[in-house]
Design a protein around this nucleic acid. Structure first.
Lengths: 145, 145
DNA sequence: TTAAATTTAATTGAATACAATTTATATTTA
DNA sequence: TAAATATAAATTGTATTCAATTAAATTTAA
């Protein structure tokens, strides 16, 4: 029994729990990130910077799936806080080079405990976590090609 | 071989693909929802209204995991477009009653094809989809209690 | 029954996010 | 080379989202 409108019920949607889950996770990060005085978007930007030290805005955007419209203001905030510097490339003036500062590197020390603290809020079976991880990247691949 | 900072690498994060996936899915909805002249948030709000016809803002918020800060403006937009009405409850003046209009009900007819169109962008194995669905709600349960 | 506590929606302010456009620079082509 | 094209970041405008606060109404408690 069901009618053609059943597909429009919230409980039959896969995208909705995905949307809620992402939203609630970002919210759960807040108390831990507040201690570092950064937001979630600033946090994932710093993750990219901790790995690469120096990148163009465009490269950061490719790692994070974000465009310059979002990143310009995020990076200006991180520069204000002293975690990165922003400078035009001399090789190509169109590029803006973002570089991790010593203060930015030092923040890593504080951040290193965030993942476990968040993980203990979620408490997901490792096998389920892996399945979730793989499936999410599969969907991302399909949506972003 | 890894070091204590490995947990801070983007590829070792579970929350990050969740965040990206949700973001990209909402973006994928856009062309289809543009045809209905509504946004994703307005769309899920209409889903709740199609199922319940009449609800308080608070009830909508409980269904969608959104607070009045978000919903007040979403509902004002939906009222402007003529899909719902907003009226204070006579029983309890604190409550604001949102009611589906005929035009709102009619929109359902156009919306009914959105889920399949979106589904064909994702093309997920049904078994994986179910696993994903269950796991997401498991995480939501842990994060929102 | 008044006073205190609770509930509900709205408001305010900060931070995203994206589409579309603009500006500046660099590359390609005619 | 000059013009056309392409690329990168920034800007603009719209819409979320949340935390914190406010205002009004209701309920509870002293």
């Amino acid at each position: 029994m069901g009618n053609k409108y059943d597909v429009l019920k919230l409980r039959n949607q896969l995208c909705f729990p995905l949307y809620v889950c992402a939203k609630e996770i970002v919210r759960s990060y807040k108390p831990y990130l507040d201690e570092l005085d950064i937001t979630y978007t600033q946090y994932i930007t710093m993750m990219v910077m901790w790995e690469h030290k120096e990148l163009r805005v465009k490269d950061i955007g490719e790692h994070l799936y974000l465009d310059s419209g979002t990143l310009t203001s995020v990076l200006k905030k991180l520069e204000e806080k002293g975690f990165v510097t922003r400078k035009r490339s001399e090789k190509d003036e169109r590029d803006l080079i973002v570089t991790l500062t010593d203060k930015g590197t030092a923040l890593k020390e504080k951040a290193v405990h965030v993942p476990e603290r968040l993980g203990s809020c979620i408490e997901l079976d490792p096998q389920k976590a892996k399945m979730l991880y793989d499936t999410l990247y599969e969907v991302i691949g399909k949506l972003t090609k």
